[in-house]
Design a protein around this nucleic acid. Structure first.
Length: 271
DNA sequence: ATGCCTTCTGCAAGAAGA
């Protein structure tokens, strides 16, 4: 089974590119982030014509997450237990569209878009930490049940200094802060392994390049999109690809897909 | 001096991204 995650930065703008990717790479399940639309605005037809079912969650033009699958899609959930709300001072707090879960061919999959944080002294940064903490608590219970769980998406975390071209950039403090890195590594303690690095450990394997300042041609990027798998799923992983080519050409997202291939669940093999 | 992209809404320019 081929699983991918991709922050598409508007599915309505990028739909042709995304469906072309699915067909070109024979991806079975795609977790998307930043779809930037409500479900009724999602370009379903292009996905269904290509043989995929879609579950999406979006409240407005911000955030938004979705899962497309050609191997089953059931038990859809649009928030995880304990998912925190966020609102500007004076405004009502809202549980934003930053997570969607579904079961696809026996894998409990979550597509997540972790809050950016904005700056260390911004309330958005505390929101980011509480989002990661709450997700990790839920993740621990999922893993301890023995389910095959994948939590994938745009984590907005730079785990290692080698995951960014310049770790000292002050605008990246929200992504390299010790508290953020600790919140991310806590998923390991909860029983998860990050699979793309297992197969692609080299420095400079980035998944995001800013649109500005010729960041992509200069390979000044960062690695912030990850595939976390529970203990029962990890042994089935056989390879990973970061599809850097998707940053090229006309109208790319600023992120590229991260792909992981899994062997079939041995429990599903017929006797 | 500021920004150098891209997307959204909505029709101007601001918010947000990282």
């Amino acid at each position: 089974m081929r699983l991918a995650t991709w922050n598409v930065n508007s599915i309505r703008t990028r739909v042709d590119r995304v469906v072309d990717f699915l067909e070109r790479t024979h991806t079975d399940v795609l977790a998307m982030q930043e779809i930037k639309c409500r479900p009724e605005q999602f370009p379903l037809d292009a996905f269904e014509s290509a043989g995929y079912r879609v579950a999406s969650h979006g409240l407005d033009q911000w955030n938004g997450v979705a899962i497309a699958s050609r191997v089953g899609l059931s038990e859809v959930e649009t928030t995880f237990p304990g998912q925190p709300a966020f609102g500007k001072a004076g405004a009502d707090a809202v549980v934003e569209a930053r997570a969607i879960g579904a079961t696809c061919e026996g894998i409990k999959l979550w597509s997540v878009y972790v809050p950016h944080g904005r700056s260390l002294d911004d309330p958005h940064f505390a929101y980011k930490l509480s989002f990661l903490d709450a997700l990790c608590l839920s993740a621990a219970t999922w893993a301890s049940s023995g389910d095959s769980v994948a939590i994938v998406g745009d984590w907005n975390v730079i785990p290692l200094d080698t995951d960014v071209w310049d770790a000292s950039g002050p605008e990246l403090s929200t992504h390299v802060a010790p508290k953020v890195r600790a919140a991310f590594s806590a998923f390991e303690d909860a029983g998860y392994d990050e699979l793309s690095r297992r197969f692609l450990p080299e420095p400079g394997r980035y998944t995001y390049w800013d649109y500005q300042q010729l960041r992509f041609p200069k390979n000044e990027g960062m690695r912030i999109d990850f595939v976390l798998a529970s203990g029962t799923l990890t042994p089935r992983a056989v390879g990973a690809i970061i599809d850097r080519g998707e940053r090229k050409g006309a109208g790319p997202s600023d992120h590229v897909p991260v792909i992981v291939d899994f062997l079939d669940d041995p429990g599903s093999v017929e006797a």
